[in-house]
């Protein structure tokens, strides 16, 4: 399976007695953009944390470039993380440093490069996301969209093999959303990096994703290329794609019937 950078094999994961994944398998092809979609609260971010080794699955295995992540020792895991990076939903920029220092952080930590080389590299990364002019600003001075782009520049600082995007479009206006879509696509093409995009913004991601997984009810309910997904005849997939309020994923949180509760019959 050389063409798959990340293999998730039959994992089961539960958190404080709530089952999140039940025997899920996902393959992330190398150099492509894979989208993982699903309704809120089904643990899409958890999937990224499992791949990053911050959480361990109860059962099953996750491999990165052929090596099992849950089985790694702490130091090997840290070594492996140098070749993956993650764009957090909040950006997670270090608030006490300027944008420049944020992007330079990983380079200063993990390489012996001289300060002038680091400066060049950082400015190139910032140029790629259009924030070269904002290098000296503090994260608190950035707008939400700019913060996410700065975080993206930081995520690509070490030229990782894998970038994981956690809800990159959440809470963005249409312009920043367009910018981010363009950036994700151009980064994937220019650096031929493998990307995993976790999101529930259907339209944006179907435009750029090479392959799509849809998760719901602890399972993979559909996967395929964007085209295949659009033509899927699964009612669950269609409800998700078209944003219908009620369907196989119910509108109501499980409860006794309204009549029973109002008349006090539920006791």
């Amino acid at each position: 399976m050389n063409d798959h950078l990340v293999e998730i094999q039959n994992i089961t994961f539960s958190r404080s007695e709530r089952l999140i994944y039940d025997d899920i398998s996902i393959s992330i092809p190398k150099g492509k953009i894979t989208a993982i979609m699903g309704p809120s609260g089904i643990g899409k971010t958890t999937m990224l944390r499992l791949i990053g080794g911050q959480l361990k699955p109860d059962k099953g295995d996750i491999t990165f470039a052929g090596k099992s992540i849950p089985a790694m020792s702490r130091s090997t895991l840290y070594q492996t993380r140098k070749s993956m990076s993650m764009l957090f939903q909040s950006g997670a920029l270090f608030t006490d440093m300027s944008v420049f220092d944020n992007v330079a952080f990983a380079l200063r930590e993990h390489t012996q490069l001289s300060e002038s080389v680091i400066k060049t590299l950082v400015l190139l990364k910032l140029e790629a996301v259009g924030l070269r002019g904002a290098a000296q600003l503090l994260p608190s001075e950035l707008s939400g969209g700019m913060a996410r782009r700065a975080a993206l520049a930081r995520a690509i600082a070490l030229d990782p093999e894998l970038i994981m995007y956690d809800e990159p479009f959440a809470g963005q206006d249409p312009i920043s959303m367009g910018v981010l879509v363009k950036l994700i696509r151009s980064l994937s093409e220019a650096l031929s990096v493998t990307s995993i995009v976790v999101t529930h913004d259907v339209n944006e991601v179907l435009d750029i994703a090479d392959y799509v997984y849809i998760l719901a009810n602890q399972k993979v309910i559909g996967h395929g290329t964007a085209q295949q997904i659009k033509q899927s005849d699964s009612p669950l997939v269609q409800q998700f794609l078209q944003g219908q309020a009620d369907g196989p994923v119910p509108f109501h949180y499980p409860a006794p019937t309204l009549q029973a509760q109002l008349l006090g019959e539920d006791k």
Binding site: Y78, M84, S90, A92, T95, A106, L158
Partner: peptide, 14 residues
């Protein structure tokens, strides 16, 4: 809370 600790971990900084 702002995921800075998580992001350090993911940047391979303990």
């Amino acid at each position: 809370a702002t995921e800075q600790l998580s992001s350090l971990e993911m940047m391979a900084v303990d």
